[in-house]
Design a protein around this nucleic acid. Structure first.
Length: 482
DNA sequence: GGCGGAAGGT
DNA sequence: ACCTTCCGCC
């Protein structure tokens, strides 16, 4: 069915994956075009999109436990979802049915006793958004080993190649190869490769198929002129500079509550050099400069999207986590991540997934619906953030703001950004002057099989790894691979 | 409100 | 596969 709902094209930009600061999910997070449903965003993606956006704090927000969110305005969420899916008759009853559908897939579960409250199973989702492939295929992984000196730690244990292979049966030993991808028989080509999420046991069958592996896409496969939101443009030099993070949006996918600040939760607990990545004396450093901070509002974390930082440290999804404790039926720790996953690759590499903690969400910003209805802002909200009204999205919902995602990467969105930034609402990295500059401004340009770390895995995060070391390891990898 | 079965659509 | 729609049940 073709409808005039918000165009998927606007919602599925060719965002360069790991470093994607955009509000939509990276290309690989969407279904392949060949699949039924053709690249339509999945509900949980959509939920995450809403969750990461300031303007929907009044509609849906992180709240409570790690990964837990509350739908403050079920009707509005349903409406937005309906717009998104061109289902004008969508309502919360149906939406919730779809959410329940995720129970079995263990992507979500219900927080019992709390109305409209659900909880993500991070072990499912995190890797969907941090495809290990990139991590695995990046020499950055090698760098991880340098952080812990190659020795096992409870939080980031080097795993033998065998162990890794057992986790990811098709993960190539070299960290680079086709085995994570399902090469369509006789159809190798741009779409011939699909990341085999089914090789990730913790992702299960419910995980969306990647249309393409991010780091193997090569130079942006489509529409390179895509106008990135908040003025962010990965093509621009410095866009991936760790020291230049104001380019990043306030609600980066990788920096929202859903990806609680690994710097905060992990680096501060890790020995140097991890801890040195945090601003001095800042236990909650990463929140600083993110969300005002002077108004007492629980900050909506906008963590600098160090994609590479995710694998840095400990996993706090439960066991030994900092207040992340899962208390409900197995929950988020069903996957290997939950146990403090350390993934090694090839040469005794250590990879932990996510140092995770979460701030309580939900500053109660006034939602579009509230604005629409003229509802007074949530008393606990102090937000004066002007939300760009992207009402040029045609839909059955006449004259309503409609679903704004991706709609206006231009002036509107930027003004939003500017305003947000002017209020210190994120997109600002904590000072990381100690970090070396990025190697390449282009996230993917140099992504060969064995190249310097892509921007998605900033070399800055391997301060102890010299280029010589990298080169050496690269060579070693080549040998191992051959 | 929340649940899951069932049927159906794409 | 991933919902959407409908429904009866609790």
């Amino acid at each position: 069915m073709d409808c005039n709902c918000v165009s998927d094209l606007l919602l599925t930009p060719p965002v360069p994956t790991l470093w994607t600061p955009g509000i939509a999910f990276p290309d690989w997070a969407y279904k392949p075009e060949s699949s039924p449903g053709s690249r339509q965003i999945q509900l949980w993606h959509f939920i995450l999109e809403l969750l990461q956006k300031e303007e929907y704090q009044g509609v849906i927000a992180w709240q409570g436990d790690y990964g837990e969110f509350v739908i403050k305005d079920p009707d509005e969420v349903a409406r937005l979802w309906g717009i998104r899916k061109c289902k004008p008759h969508m309502n919360y009853d149906k939406l919730s049915r779809a959410l329940r559908y995720y129970y079995n897939k263990r992507i979500l579960h219900k927080t019992k006793g709390k109305r409209f409250t659900y909880k993500f199973n991070f072990s499912k989702v995190v890797l969907v958004n941090y495809p290990l492939l990139d991590m695995a295929s990046s020499p950055f992984l090698l760098a991880q080993n340098h952080f812990n000196g190659g020795t096992a730690t409870p939080d980031c244990s080097p795993v033998t190649p065998e162990a890794l292979q057992s986790l990811f049966p098709r993960l190539p030993e070299s960290g680079r190869g086709p085995s994570l991808f399902e090469r369509s028989a006789g159809a190798p080509g741009p779409d011939g490769d699909k990341l085999r999420l089914d090789t990730f046991p913790f992702l299960g069958s419910g995980a969306p198929c990647y249309s393409k592996p991010p780091s193997l896409l090569g130079p942006y496969p489509r529409n390179p002129a895509f106008d990135y939101p908040w003025g962010f443009n990965p093509y621009l030099p410095g866009a991936f500079s760790l020291n230049n993070c104001p380019k990043l949006p306030p609600g980066s996918l990788y920096s929202s509550h859903f990806y609680p600040n690994p710097l905060q939760s992990s680096l501060s607990q890790l020995p140097h050099p991890f801890s040195s990545l945090l601003p001095p004396g800042d236990a909650t450093g990463a929140e600083r400069g993110q969300t005002g901070g002077t108004n007492g509002q629980p900050p909506r974390l906008c963590i600098p999207p160090y994609p590479g930082s995710v694998p840095l440290g400990r996993t706090e999804l439960g066991n030994g986590g900092t207040g992340v404790g899962d208390r409900e039926r197995g929950e988020a720790n069903t996957g290997v991540i939950g146990g403090g996953l350390g993934l090694g690759l090839g040469l005794g590499l250590g990879l932990g997934l996510g140092g995770l903690s979460v701030g309580s969400g939900g500053g109660g910003r006034q939602s579009p619906s509230e604005r629409r209805k003229g509802v007074k802002q949530d008393p606990e909200s102090d937000s004066e953030l002007e939300i760009t009204d992207l009402s040029d999205c045609s839909s059955e919902n006449e004259n309503e703001p409609d679903f704004p995602l991706r709609k206006e990467p231009g002036l509107g969105g930027r003004s939003h950004l500017l305003e947000a930034k002017s209020r210190g609402l994120g997109g600002v990295l904590p000072p990381l002057s100690s970090l070396p500059p990025p190697v390449s401004p282009h996230p993917l340009k140099s992504l060969g099989p064995l190249t310097p770390p892509p921007s998605s895995l900033p070399p800055s995060l391997s301060p102890s790894l010299s280029m010589v070391d990298r080169q050496r390891e690269t060579e070693t990898l080549k040998l191992a691979h051959s």
